[in-house]
Each structure stands twice: as structure tokens, then as C-alpha cells.
Simulated scan of single mutants.
Amino acid sequence: MSTTLGVPRPDQADYMLRAAAGDAGRAYKRWMLDLLDVREGHTVLDVGCGPGTDLPALAERVGDGGTVIGVDHDRAMLDRARARTAGLRRVELREGDAHALPVEPGTIDRARTDRVLMHVAEPADVLVQLHRATRPGARVGFAEPDWDTLIVDAEDLETSRAFTRFTTAEVVRHATIGRGLARLAGRAGFRVEAVHATTPFFRDFDEADHTLGLGRNLQRAIDEGHIDRARGRDWFDGLSRTGAFYASFTLVCVVCSR
């Protein structure tokens, strides 16, 4: 049996927290938070809140008169979020599905999803749910990658392209959701106010391997016959040896009003 390439799949909560802590993660989150214009007294909904990465910042903005509702379908994630927000009385955590949000219609002033729609069964249905949950005049923000734009610098350019094709076709459920956010939001009844695209990039191989799953996804591509084993291993070994590693992708953020 062959040795698995790269780092093993990380704990999902740790992965999300680490990704949010990087320069690119902090920058787009700050942009979205500013454009959402969360104010004192607002009721804010964070769909797919995960380990509660953004709940404290939202709670700070709503003040003592507001409420932040974090929704996630994963109880383990909610446990992490509960620990992260201990002592914040204005944060509520609810177990629920993004396709059937556990909130009353027309009660939400601000809402957000962050790298959630690429995983759900039907992104368009989730947007309809958000439209139902929000009040007239509400603002909603979305942030999603477009994995079709993933590039990994290597001398073997064809294998880099094959890795991106595999990621898009087999690894991520809705891999190109980022480019369609504005269109889908409009169809759901939202008015698009702002669109922002950023390019998170990696110069450190180990960080890229952890975040982008270079080794583990390459191993899967090899095992499923999408990439030749010897060529794939040569490609991966070359990435880890280079002194000038580079990889990047595009992340799209959209802020809308209702």
C-alpha cells in the first residue's frame, strides 16, 4: 500500500480557524463586516457558523441590545462555538440546516454565510431561505471561493491543471459558486450592492498543503485514476522542494440588500 501524500485531513474546526487567521482571511472578513453595517440592536444571523470564528466580532457590533444567532448542522462545531462565545449573553447557537433555517420569517436585520454555499445541497434554496428570514431593508453577505481559478506553480504545468480540474470536478460540491454569487442572489430577490474579489496566495508549501489539500487530494486523484501515480508523485515532490513555491485562488464576496 502506498504512503498517503501530504498532511492528513485536519480537524475541520481547526482548519476553519486557521484559514480565518491569515492575512487574506482577515481582509475579506473585515470588508464584509464593514459593508454589512451591523449596528447596535440588530439581530444578526451567521449561517454555517462553524466553531464560532466570527461570532464575537458580530456580538461586539450589536451591543447589549442586539442578538447574534449562529446556526450550524454539526453539533461538534456548535460545541466549539459555545466554548468560544462563553460569557457573551447576546449570542444564541441553534442546531439546524441551512435549507430550513431555525428562525422566524422576517426577523433578521443582517445575515452572512462564509464558505458555506459550496458545500450545501442546493445553494439557491439556501438563498431563498435567507430572503424569507430577513426583514425589508436587511443586508446579507456571502463569501465563496472559485476553485476553477486554483493555480499551483510547477514545471509540470499539465499536472497542475489536472489537479485543479480534479478539485473542481470531484472534491468540492459547488466548486465555482463564487463566480455565481451575484447572479444567484439576484434570483433569490436580493439587490446586489457590492462585489469584491480577492486572491489568497501561498508562498509556504506546508501552509498550502494544509489549506488546499495538495497531498491528500492528489492521492485521491491518483487512486481514482485521474492522475498518473509516478507523474503525480514527481509533481508533489517538486512542489515541496522548490525554494519559490506559489499557489493561489480567487475568493468572491458579495453584499446585498433585501
Results as ranks from 00 to 15, higher is better:
165 R>M: 13
153 D>Y: 02
144 E>C: 01
146 D>A: 02
154 A>W: 06
168 T>M: 01
170 E>T: 07
171 V>S: 06
173 R>F: 08
144 E>N: 03
169 A>V: 11
179 R>Q: 11
156 D>T: 05
178 G>R: 00
181 L>N: 12
159 T>F: 04
163 F>A: 06
152 V>Q: 06
183 R>N: 09
170 E>A: 12
152 V>K: 10
151 I>G: 01
182 A>F: 06
150 L>K: 06
143 A>V: 15
166 F>W: 15
179 R>N: 14
150 L>I: 08
151 I>D: 08
167 T>L: 05
148 D>C: 03
173 R>L: 08
158 E>A: 14
181 L>F: 11
178 G>D: 01
157 L>V: 14
166 F>I: 09
168 T>Y: 03
147 W>E: 13
150 L>G: 06
166 F>V: 12
181 L>T: 14
170 E>L: 05
177 I>H: 10
146 D>Y: 02
178 G>V: 01
173 R>C: 02
154 A>Q: 08
150 L>F: 14
183 R>Y: 06
164 T>N: 14
147 W>Q: 07
162 A>R: 08
150 L>Q: 15
157 L>E: 13
150 L>C: 06
167 T>D: 11
182 A>S: 15
175 A>L: 03
157 L>F: 10
179 R>C: 14
147 W>Y: 12
164 T>I: 00
157 L>Y: 12
145 P>H: 05
146 D>N: 12
176 T>W: 01
145 P>D: 07
182 A>Q: 05
157 L>N: 05
144 E>M: 04
164 T>H: 08
159 T>Y: 05
171 V>T: 11
147 W>P: 03
165 R>N: 14
181 L>K: 12
153 D>I: 03
159 T>H: 05
158 E>Q: 09
151 I>T: 14
169 A>Q: 15
162 A>D: 15
148 D>K: 04
168 T>K: 00
155 E>L: 00
143 A>H: 11
149 T>R: 01
149 T>P: 01
175 A>E: 06
160 S>G: 12
144 E>K: 02
169 A>W: 13
159 T>C: 08
164 T>Y: 07
163 F>K: 02
162 A>T: 02
172 V>K: 05
180 G>L: 06
171 V>C: 12
165 R>L: 14
157 L>T: 12
172 V>I: 15
176 T>Q: 13
148 D>N: 15
154 A>F: 08
152 V>W: 10
144 E>R: 03
168 T>S: 06
148 D>M: 00
168 T>V: 07
181 L>W: 08
166 F>C: 13
178 G>A: 00
175 A>W: 02
172 V>M: 13
156 D>I: 00
176 T>Y: 01
170 E>V: 09
179 R>M: 12
147 W>T: 07
178 G>P: 11
160 S>N: 06
180 G>R: 08
171 V>Y: 04
159 T>K: 07
149 T>S: 05
146 D>C: 02
159 T>W: 04
176 T>P: 09
147 W>D: 15
174 H>K: 02
163 F>E: 08
149 T>N: 02
161 R>H: 03
154 A>D: 13
145 P>Q: 03
170 E>N: 10
145 P>M: 00
148 D>Y: 04
147 W>N: 07
169 A>P: 13
174 H>C: 00
158 E>K: 08
153 D>H: 09
143 A>F: 02
147 W>C: 04
167 T>N: 10
152 V>Y: 09
167 T>I: 06
172 V>E: 13
